[in-house]
Simulated assay, not measured.
Amino acid sequence: MSDPEGVRHFLTINAANYRRPSVVRRIGVPLGGSGLFLAEGAEWRRQRKLLAPTFTPSSINVLVPHFHEAARHLLHDAEGKPSVNLSRAFQDTALEAVLRALFSMPENRAREELSALVRGYIEGAGRPGLLDGFAPSDNSFGFALGKRRRFQSKWFAAIAAIIAQRKAEPRSADNRDFLDLLLQLKDADTGEMLSDDEIRDQSATMFFAGSETTARLMFWSGYLLTLDREEQQRLSSEIAAFPPDRVRMLEDLANWPRLRNVLLEALRLYPPLPHIVRQANGPDTISGTSVAANDQIWASAWIMQRHRKFWQNPTAFMPDRFAGKSAPWVQMPSYIPFGVGPRICIGLHFALSEAQIVLAHLLARYRITVVGTRLVMPVGRVTIEPDYEPMFRLERI
């Protein structure tokens, strides 16, 4: 379904009739448990209502110092090197940012092991296979789920240990992170705090959603800027007029409108997720097409955001098309990089803020170019990845 009205029908108007298919759950549950990304129905509504306050601008302001530290980590690692693999560097930086924002984890062996554990899953057992596509349920073909279950056991145990330590040693009010926000949440109806398992699942969900997709956004934005030197120079001038170290809260990011537009255009050309997939609970009609129970509906941001019916010069890199658009995911029906409707990505402001701060630090110090002339092509897996990881040359400004 590539018609914006049809997409909004099954993701917004009649969203209650659709669920995530087993293939998504088979890959996602080991990473995020029963967190917000995979919850359904009344449980999803309860979680969304509970978590909404943690993603308001005032809450994300608490995390801005962590984004700066992650950016400085990137610059430190790149210093003095003739060329850098920015795809891998952005993945490391995004993991750095989310570990700091989630748990305030300093650089140590435990953090490296946690990052390596998740990266190993994403690049290995977390990739969908043939059996996932044919599986009628979450636990079908159980013989093929061993690696995922072993990962889940280690991953959940590691996060549970971090939560237990934080509860035993609370942090000061002026040095908070996302875990502190979760520990303070209360159900408005019952007054109950989140259980340890719920905090674990939300933290695990945030870890993946706030790292892998943001890393892809930063990579494709950087790559596009190497293809458009003039746009990169305009960005450098914008950032020089308001250096990154002056950013203290989200409202300061308004000083970089061009940088934001570059990110929005990168999300249009290379949306983090190639498809949004739902499975029908019962019969329906979408854009005149009959849908039966258990039919799968696929919406492709890749197709909609590059379709000549919806966009002028759809394959061109034109950041100015987003000028003046405060919320294009609402204002532009064919723009769905964060999804659409009630399940639109709750962390979109988190991702955009992190990407702006990290890229601003990089572009304030360096001009970036790609080594060689081979084009980087997109590959749709769990996220939209580069077909190879090019080396980038960083020229000190």
Rank of each mutant, 00 (worst) to 15 (best):
E79Q: 14
Q152W: 01
G28E: 07
T56Y: 03
H73E: 10
A71E: 03
G133A: 10
A89R: 15
W44P: 04
Q47G: 03
E40P: 03
Y121S: 01
V84L: 06
E69Q: 14
N85R: 06
Y121E: 07
F134E: 00
S104P: 06
A89W: 07
A70W: 03
P82I: 09
Y121I: 04
N139I: 00
A78Y: 07
F37V: 15
T56L: 14
R109Y: 04
A110V: 03
A125D: 12
K154G: 01
A71V: 05
R45N: 10
V98G: 02
G28V: 07
D132C: 06
G120L: 09
R48A: 15
G133P: 00
L51Q: 06
F90D: 05
K49Y: 01
R119I: 12
A144Q: 04
K154L: 11
S153W: 04
A101D: 04
K49I: 01
L74H: 02
E40Y: 06
V29S: 05
S153P: 00
L38R: 00
P128M: 09
A70D: 07
L36N: 01
Q91H: 11
R127C: 00
F55I: 05
H66W: 10
P65L: 04
F90E: 03
G33R: 09
F134P: 01
F134W: 13
D92Q: 15
R72H: 12
R46I: 02
S137Q: 01
F134R: 09
F103M: 10
N139G: 07
R119G: 12
P53L: 08
P82H: 06
L51R: 08
W44K: 05
P106G: 11
S153D: 11
R127D: 00
Q152E: 15
S58T: 13
L51T: 08
A78I: 09
R100H: 08
G33Q: 12
I27P: 01
E113W: 00
G146K: 15
R48G: 03
S34F: 10
N139K: 07
R45G: 02
V62N: 02
G32W: 02
G28L: 13
R46T: 10
S34M: 11
L75R: 04
R119A: 15
L38F: 12
P30K: 07
L114K: 05
S34H: 15
P57N: 06
F37D: 07
L36F: 01
W44R: 05
G142D: 13
L38W: 05
A70M: 07
V84Y: 06
G142K: 14
F141A: 14
R72S: 05
R109A: 14
E43I: 03
L95A: 13
E113N: 03
A89K: 12
R119F: 08
N139W: 11
G33M: 09
G80T: 09
H73K: 10
I27R: 09
E96I: 02
A101W: 05
L131P: 00
L95Y: 14
A94T: 11
S137E: 04
K81E: 13
H66G: 13
A89D: 12
A125Q: 06
